[in-house]
Every structure is written in C-alpha cells, then in structure tokens.
C-alpha cells in the first residue's frame, strides 16, 4: 500500500504496508513497540501523545503516518542520549514532578521543544508552550519550576522564589 519511510529516534524505519491514515501514535505504540508515547484523547486536546517531528512538537494521535513520511521523529524513548539524561529529565527527577506520571512524556516533549527554541523562557513563555498538555494530577507548578531549573534560571519568578510549595 504505502512505502512510507521515516526515522524514529535516529533509526530508519520502513512502514511497509501500514495504513497511511494510521495516526503516528498507534504506529509507534502497536507496530514499533514504543509505548512511551501515550494515548489520552485521540483528538489533540491533551498532549499525552506529543512527539517531535523534525524538532517541532506534534500531537501524534492526530498525525497520519503519511504526514510523517521522510520526517525525523523523536519520542520520549529517544530524548536522552543513551543513559545520559537531558537537563529537563534530571530536573523532573530532582523536583519529583510526576504524580501518576502518565502525561509526563508528552510534557517533556513539549518542554524540550520549548527550550530548544527558547533557552531562557519566562513563566508566560512556558505557560504558552505547555498549555496544550493536560495533567490530570495537576503537577503544573512543578513542571514549570522544572523547566526553569533545566534552563538554568536562578532568579525566575518560579515557585521556589515566591515561597510556594512545590
């Protein structure tokens, strides 16, 4: 049917006869066996399925496989360099960001795309970039603080400097 080829976490993948309409999310999860990218709503509302397409954050639940042809896809499994975590991932652990953890892959993919284009984001920048990612446990304040931490902010108006509990 299709001869879609793409790159996933640096590896070339040939989608063979996969349905070009299949959302990238299900291709990653069910065909490639990469379950780190999460299904949450299927309509691009929650952001749990966020991956990078050529470096930009996209909602993989709403992206047909055909639209990923020849693209470089990065998923949460490919965010770290081997066992070397990114500053964002380290900050997530240091600030104990996750509660249930289900949304956090999508949060990290949105956050890493933000830092790639805006290394020192303000609170408003972060809010703008992260508003597409729902967290049902409401870990938002720690996510924002962790992004600041990863960005190396020392005096950002984040929760720590304003005295709130993280």
């Amino acid at each position: 049917m299709s001869n879609i080829s793409l790159s996933v976490n640096g590896k070339a993948v040939s989608a063979g006869n996969a349905d070009p309409e299949m959302p990238l999310l299900w291709y990653l999860r069910d065909v490639l066996g990469l379950p780190g990218t999460k299904f949450g709503c299927g309509i691009g509302q929650c952001g749990a399925c966020t991956v990078h397409l050529n470096g930009s954050p996209v909602k993989s639940c709403s992206l047909p496989l055909a639209a990923a042809a020849d693209a470089e896809i990065t998923t949460i499994e490919g965010l770290a360099e081997g066992s070397q975590l990114t500053a964002l991932q380290e900050a997530w652990i240091e600030l104990d960001v996750p509660q249930c953890g289900y949304c956090q892959a999508g949060q990290l993919m949105s956050a890493s795309a933000l830092l790639a284009s805006n290394p020192k984001p303000t609170d408003a920048d972060i809010d703008g970039a992260m508003a597409g990612n729902l967290c049902r446990c409401h870990t938002y304040r720690r996510i924002r603080a962790a992004i600041h931490r990863a960005a190396g902010a020392t005096n950002a108006a984040d929760d720590q400097s304003s005295g709130s509990s993280l």
């Binding site: 379950p35 965010l79 997530w92 104990d96 996750p98």
Partner: peptide
C-alpha cells in the same frame, strides 16, 4: 518517586 527515572525515559510502566 521510585519510578521517576523510568517515567521520564518512557519505560513501559502503565
């Protein structure tokens, strides 16, 4: 949290 590293690297937990 004890699962945090696995969470931020997308390991199968759920």
């Amino acid at each position: 949290g004890v699962d945090n590293r696995a969470t931020v690297t997308g390991q199968p937990l759920f």
